[in-house]
Design a protein around this nucleic acid. Structure first.
Lengths: 151, 151
DNA sequence: TCTCAAATCAGAACGATTCCGATTTGGGTT
DNA sequence: AACCCAAATCGGAATCGTTCTGATTTGAGA
């Protein structure tokens, strides 16, 4: 979908949003870490390195705009904090999410069609499939028992 | 697993927990609505009809004990409120959850084995599959556009 | 440059959940 | 039936992620 910071900025502009340094900082973070999920706090920490006075309000507002513009996609981890990652180009799919490094690995498999066939009387409106675990690298590096729920 | 309020109370007793009227009220709600999910607030509302002075602390503590004792199982809906329902007897499985009435309908299908085979290098630790929609009855009754996020 | 809606800030507000210190109570023991 | 004490409860404060508010600043088109 969006490949570069520039194309995203262009899209925002066409949608009537202004472009600011803080927004660039947010977009950059996602573009430069294409496969990672970031929590609002992580985004805040990144931006505040460049703009120490940035507020959470600005972070959340920017994230909201980026979600609305399909630049990033939100996902709720099991720890009650929303995370975001750059929207994937391809269509509907799910991810393997590393509990340690936050990497997300897309997978093709989606069980919803099979399930839909099995329950013709239930009108399926939506679904979420989230798969947690450890990527190859993180599984090797000792302390793999971080579990969900850290920064 | 647990079929009656009495058998649940017995299990709690054996685990060293005292039995109180408030706990009975909580257990009753789940037993008498075997297929429904309830939010903490809904449980609170139910109990406070009988014990007007009950506190949220008591509700959450009781829910915690019941989860720990495998009497009820928690599920996070997409609206950021935890819901609970009586633990199903059978093993691992997923549910269709009605966004309108809260009913949950167990299904056999679980895609995790298939996915595990496809990604041998990723150590899958956990997964969540949540399917939202409208049960047959609720789909028929007009206003089916309640979406997620009401009481 | 001028203008003004959009963006930003600091801090208050919010809602679900948890914690805390003080008080009450279930239920086993006399 | 009275005693005891850990468990349970209460009310209210605290926490945490997120959102709102009111005042101030700023991007970018005229």
């Amino acid at each position: 979908m969006h490949e570069t910071t520039a194309s995203i900025l262009q899209a925002l502009k066409e949608a009537g949003y202004k472009f600011t340094g803080k927004r660039r900082a947010v977009v950059d973070l996602f573009v430069e870490n294409r496969d990672r999920y970031f929590s609002a706090k992580e985004v805040y920490d990144h931006v505040s390195q460049i703009y120490p006075s940035v507020s959470f309000d600005t972070i959340y507002r920017t994230l909201g705009i980026l979600v609305e513009q399909n630049v990033i996609e939100p996902m709720e981890f099991a720890d009650d904090r929303a995370r975001y990652r750059l929207q994937c180009a391809r269509g509907h799919h799910h991810h393997l999410v590393c509990l340690r490094c936050g990497a997300s690995i897309p997978i093709e498999e989606c069980p919803i069609d099979r399930i839909r066939q099995q329950v013709p009387n239930f009108h399926i409106a939506d679904h979420r499939l989230e798969i947690y675990g450890y990527c190859q690298r993180c599984a090797q590096e000792g302390g793999e028992r971080l579990e969900r729920g850290q920064t």
